[in-house]
């Protein structure tokens, strides 16, 4: 049997808006993925550590405080340092379009904005993990 796709849903930074993170976590689980949720108020170090410990394929980060340009690149940098650059990063939250472009240029696989259908997130993750499954 193929290994299930493992996803870490993480809430970096100080904001407590976890509705989106939890809805996405539920949707990915219902789509048959293994989902680990970090809980709130995580530092980039905590997220990178969990991602490696849990041996995930994807890290999904949700942030609504405006700190995305600090948090996302930091997590990616830490994963790279720990030899885990193969873990895909996706994100969501209140991220202006201009920053979406910058984050994707930095290597974030995809930023899902407000109003995203969870089925398109499932599809994206399944497609981008096709070779690992």
């Amino acid at each position: 049997m193929a290994r299930k796709i493992r996803v870490l849903i993480a809430k970096p930074g100080l904001d407590g808006h976890d509705r989106g993170a939890k809805v996405v976590a539920n949707a990915l689980r219902d789509a048959g993925m293994e989902v680990i949720y970090t809980g709130l108020h995580q530092t980039p170090e905590m997220i990178a550590e969990s991602a490696i410990q849990e041996d995930v394929d994807v890290v999904g980060m949700s942030i609504l405080s405006g700190a995305h340009m600090t948090m996302f690149p930091r997590v990616m940098e830490l994963l790279k340092q720990k030899g885990a650059a193969c873990i895909k990063i996706v994100g969501g939250g209140i991220v202006p379009e201009e920053d979406v472009g910058k984050l994707e240029a930095l290597g974030v696989a995809k930023v899902f904005g407000p109003g995203t259908d969870t089925r398109s997130i499932v599809e994206f993750i399944e497609k981008s993990c096709a070779h690992t499954a």
Binding site: L14, T43, L64, G66, A67, M71
Partner: peptide, 10 residues
């Protein structure tokens, strides 16, 4: 340190 990137943002 925990304030980094968040100051004056939201």
């Amino acid at each position: 340190p925990r304030a980094e990137g968040e100051v004056g943002r939201c």
